[in-house]
């Protein structure tokens, strides 16, 4: 009986990296997009240092592009 520890290890590492990366990138993108919304005066965010709307949008675009790349690679993996 042979257990393919190498494959199992590879699956663990790759799926951990990919799964967490996608979620964190989307989270960052949403933080970036939040900069486009004006913080409520007197709210928790009022007075806190915030991104400019343009910088936030740029961060979101970069993060989402990375997500699209990972998902695209996932689709490539299914097809290949």
């Amino acid at each position: 009986m042979t257990i393919d520890w190498a494959s199992l290890g590879l699956v663990s590492v790759v799926s951990l990296a990919a799964g967490v990366a996608v979620v964190v990138l989307v989270s960052f993108a949403l933080v970036g997009l939040s900069a486009r919304v004006r913080p409520r005066p007197g709210g928790a965010e009022d007075g806190a240092p915030t991104l400019s709307a343009g910088a936030g949008t740029a961060i979101a675009a970069v993060c989402l592009a990375a997500v699209v790349a990972i998902v695209g690679f996932g689709l490539y993996v299914i097809v290949s």
Partner: peptide, 13 residues
């Protein structure tokens, strides 16, 4: 996202 990552990597192997 986690489900997809695990299924795709294992299915590929």
């Amino acid at each position: 996202a986690s489900t997809t990552a695990v299924i795709l990597t294992s299915s590929h192997l």
